[in-house]
Design a protein around this nucleic acid. Structure first.
Lengths: 211, 211
DNA sequence: GTCTATAGAGTGATAGAC
DNA sequence: GTCTATCACTCTATAGAC
């Protein structure tokens, strides 16, 4: 149903206070990250958003539907919040991979390694029990990997021709998630740093024949 | 309080039907793995164990205490169930690493990639909210890494002298957990295989100067 | 679109008989 | 050590006024 009156523009995304729906998504995203999906009660989301239950169930059919909304938003935010800033920081395609991992490091440090990766947490918690949410988690991972893969393709001959760029991109995600998990468990950044250092060493050896 | 009567041996671990405490731990471990900790109700544990709540609260002070029992049991089972069988399968210290990863692969396949790693799942779910459980998760990870590190030390000169064995062992855990997470999300073994293949390539390059 | 009030089921945990 | 019965609370979701 498109808006027929051309003077009334529909989204107006940024300016002014966030809409109720936005505040609900914000509150839910943060609580799901801090406590997990199952451990977060709808009441906590309502309180954090400053909203009553009637409003929540006006925008979302259920708590699970709210989760889907949160995962959709993560999909939307990937490029503007994660990928684009990295590409603005450096043009070197391989360095972009490590700048990306460096920004996850900053997030871990900012939160004292308490929270971890929002998608990774949800991936393990809901993949086996919430099929629709699982598919959106997969979409998040796929888009992330596709962006990294683009950089690896841009690296051209710096990587051996027989190195599968898509597989290497997934491997970068593996190292990020595995390192983040250990950092969260240990509440220390060192396991994450050690993981990224391992990947760095691997990539260094892959690009050793650099011209 | 040690048993003073020498004819009454205390543990008698294996024979006969499992004790009530054991059945509760079995049921809880499986449900926490299938549904997660928060999403598992005490009632479900009771039903699966065929026990009434009075018995559960005789052995465990709370649901959280039951979680600690599950994590303690994982610590106990690491060597007999995970490490020793791998060491029986091959003497080659580096191959042991990949046999270990191969056995996790078998478990993923047996469960259609639905469940993932019991410790990894709990690590992300409870690390920020259940401090005592978090410490037991860390102990699980530490013991796992220590076993892998021993193998890497046994590899001697096949690995360059400047390669930190402990760091590489943690990196193996990173790859296992990161790969397992993606396999669980995608419900396909391929992301796990790709992750292990990436590690294999890395280790191959590390041991390229093998005598 | 947001509010109040509440339904109805489920939660972790406890008391006390046996 | 295991049972039954039950408490006090929280959970997700809905109804209906405004």
């Amino acid at each position: 149903m498109p808006e027929t009156d051309p003077s009334a523009r529909p989204p107006e995304p940024e300016p002014g206070p966030a809409s109720t729906r936005e505040r609900l998504l914000d509150a839910a995203a943060q609580l799901f990250l801090e406590r997990g999906y199952a451990a977060t009660g709808v009441a906590a989301v309502l309180e954090k958003a400053g909203v009553r239950s009637g409003s929540l169930y006006h925008f979302f059919r259920s708590k699970e539907d709210l989760l889907l909304g949160v995962l959709d938003r993560y999909i939307e935010l990937l490029h503007p919040v994660i990928i684009a800033p990295v590409e603005a920081l450096t043009d070197d395609p391989i360095e972009r991979v490590f700048v990306l991992l460096g920004r996850y490091r900053e997030f871990l440090l900012m939160t004292d390694c308490r929270l971890g990766c929002p998608i990774g947490n949800l991936a393990l918690e809901i993949s086996d029990t919430h099929e629709e949410a699982r598919r959106k988690v997969v979409q998040n991972f796929e888009n992330w990997c596709a962006a990294v893969e683009r950089w690896l393709v841009d690296a051209g001959k710096r990587l051996p021709a027989d190195v599968d760029r898509a597989a290497l991109a997934r491997y970068v995600l593996t190292v990020m998630e595995g390192g983040q998990m250990q950092a969260k468990a240990q509440k220390r950044i060192e396991p994450y740093d050690a993981s990224v250092a391992g990947l760095r060493d691997h990539v260094l050896r892959l690009t050793a024949n650099d011209e």
